[in-house]
Design a protein around this nucleic acid. Structure first.
Lengths: 181, 181
DNA sequence: GTCTATACTTCGATAGAC
DNA sequence: GTCTATCGAAGTATAGAC
């Protein structure tokens, strides 16, 4: 029945998230996941076409949130877009820390996956937001540095969201607000 | 003879660097390297104990430069350490762009390698330098963001060193110089 | 519709001949 | 120092049980 299907599928995702986070994507075999779930490798591949599809399913919610954020920023005027982008992105990566870590674990290997097709244009839009839609190359470079740096810190730093959030917003504002040095 | 040994070894490194850069570490098999070099897989593994050892040999010069930079920063006083760290790090990653990209390609998988044992303490020393040896958590967070962000941009951005260097130094200074927002 | 058994392919690595 | 042959493990694929 579909209840069982969903249960098994969810259990696979739960176990895979745990093992991918602990041992990395490449460090976790289908055999490992199947053993922990209590099923066979073939059962995994009944629910997911291949190993990659398990990871893509895990990061899908984060990807949707990124799409939503970029859509929201499109409606913000040039004056407010920088702050909206900074706060929106910091909130997003703090909310999806595990997913961000998984994405970093498998890039650049996964960048050619169809599911990643639009990710490049999404991050480009975010960079434009961080740069306040400036055409200046130095502003865009600063935006790229902050975007990648914030994501990396959220993965690596174990402090909780309450401590991390203000520090990340402050450094982004300080680096991206022009005419201060 | 040793001349031949060195020639083959160097050729393996040359080909491996090219293939790793183009297809990624995981996307390049020993078979691929051997075919391009014109030898067998067993010959590769005569010169290098395992596949990982080829990559470690490729990034060794960059690792040595990082050790040198950290040693140099230890002799700089608190007042000048931030600028020295920023300029030293930007120069280093621009000099070893290919190696930095290779490292990012294989982390976090390689972080447990013995050769990476001291890398964590080296980057910690660099973070302290970026933060001007401040004990403030917000300063240290800003330092981590800039360090990771600069490395990521150097990998991703195809502009040459002359264009990139000033933009990177400026954003780091702006973000890390306190009392400006 | 859900799952098992099993076979196929590729990969990193080893053994032993020359 | 280099080769051929082969191993074990991993990801993948499919036929068929229930």
């Amino acid at each position: 029945m579909s209840v069982v299907r969903i249960r098994t599928r969810d259990e696979i995702l739960r176990v895979a998230a745990e093992l991918f986070t602990r041992y990395g994507f490449k460090g976790t075999s289908l055999h490992d996941i199947a053993a922990e779930v209590g099923c066979s490798k073939a059962t995994l591949l009944y629910h997911f076409a291949h190993k990659d599809a398990i990871l893509l399913a895990l990061i899908e919610p984060a990807r949707q949130s990124l799409i939503d954020l970029v859509a929201r920023l499109a409606g913000v005027d040039d004056k407010g877009v920088r702050d909206a982008a900074i706060e929106g992105f910091v909130d997003l990566v703090l909310r999806y820390r595990r997913e961000v870590a998984l994405i970093y674990d498998v890039t650049p290997q996964f960048l050619q996956e169809p599911a990643f097709d639009r990710v490049r244009e999404l991050t480009d839009a975010l960079v434009a937001g961080f740069a306040g839609r400036s055409a200046d190359l130095a502003d865009q470079t600063a935006a790229k540095v902050l975007l990648a740096g914030i994501a990396a810190v959220v993965i690596d730093d174990k402090r909780d969201e309450g401590e991390l959030r203000p520090a990340l917003v402050v450094v982004a504002r300080r680096a991206l607000i022009p005419g201060k040095d």
